[in-house]
Design a protein around this nucleic acid. Structure first.
Lengths: 198, 198
DNA sequence: AATATGTTTGTGACCGCTCACTAACCAGCA
DNA sequence: TGCTGGTTAGTGAGCGGTCACAAACATATT
């Protein structure tokens, strides 16, 4: 069944993400991705010159998804704490929707084979931590968060919460609701970070 | 150069860990490991029946190292907080000494190919969190840590700190002292968890 | 409307290479 | 002499990628 190129490309990217989740990023061969969408392996190379280019397209697709999710979370209604919580919620939602994401960060493809891919993800994750630090700073300025902890350190601790929960979810049996459990622990940590009189 | 089997086995395991760090766990081929210690690829199969068995030996070696490091950290002199800090310090030291460890947790070998291997690591990490929770409980009972946070939740938050710093170290350029930066952030988090009047 | 021409998308066979693993032979030592 | 720790040589499977070719689509000319 012939399809226009743009559609095919999106289909391939989706198949790669799905396969990466189900069998692991490094098991995604061009053959597996192709047969997942019902074309031959050679057909993939009509749309992407190399496998690395295919992965790069996947990375950009994921990065875009994250960026727009953050944008939505940062609509300027509400306190810095609410925005912070929305950011974290968005992150968990994106991870739940793209479960291959944590694994991808540690894949051979990203860490060894494809330096450009690594750069794309690294930049994306840095953006997230900066957004967190920004909101934390605003929270401290508003007297909502204790200011005896550096905003950058607090941001690191919060990203650690996200990573920790996500890792437990991915490496375990995924037997809990990622977003709920994540937000629960975020609330605990946020309580620890809250200003005394709150 | 002929060597007794036990020595060779240890040598192979060490070579695999070293290679896993330098080129990534999934790039460790039998050929690469063999030539790293100056024997032919086929010689490996004199000592391990399959590659999976080799990885299992590596996992057990690492697990033993972790277990004894925790044991040393838990010598019963000092407060629960000191023991807690020693546990964390030991963990960072082990990771720094075996930098392949975080990557290993996400390798194809562990997550896809080798279910037994996954079990070994999973059990080991659970042990660590239980040790943390135990010390935290003791700290709460002694009035050193606030008890409005469940000990299990606090343990999760602390393991998240470890994972978060380790991930930043591994995925980044390893351009900071893992143990120092890790303990610094542990102290921050521990301060947040400390009882009010402390 | 029918046809001619060029482009896009997909196929199937195949290539070179790497991998884990095996088989057969070999040297030193108890 | 027989066991132990090695070698050399080879196997089959799977990988990313290429190639000649075919079918589907688009467009312009008659």
């Amino acid at each position: 069944m012939r399809k226009p190129a743009e559609l095919r490309k999106a289909e391939i990217v989706a198949a790669v993400l799905d396969l990466a989740d189900r069998i692991g990023p490094d098991r995604v061969t061009t053959g597996a991705a192709a047969s997942a969408i019902g074309v031959t392996q050679a057909a993939l190379f009509r749309h992407f010159p190399t496998k690395a280019a295919l992965w790069q397209a996947v990375a950009e697709h994921v990065a875009e998804g994250l960026a727009t999710a953050w944008d939505d979370a940062l609509r300027p209604d509400g306190s810095p704490l609410a925005r912070l919580r929305a950011l974290i919620a968005a992150q968990f939602a994106q991870i739940a929707a793209t479960p291959a994401l944590p694994m991808l960060l540690f894949s051979r493809e990203l860490n060894v084979t494809n330096a450009e891919l690594r750069g794309t993800f690294h930049r994306t994750l840095m953006s997230f931590r900066n957004l967190l630090a920004q909101e934390i700073g605003a929270g401290q300025a508003a007297g909502l968060l204790r200011d005896d902890v550096a905003a950058d350190d607090a941001a690191v601790l919060l990203t650690a919460v996200v990573q920790g929960v996500a890792i437990r979810w991915v490496l375990g049996a995924r037997d809990f609701a990622l977003r709920d459990e994540g937000l629960r622990l975020f609330d605990v940590q946020c309580g620890l970070l809250a200003a005394e009189g709150e």
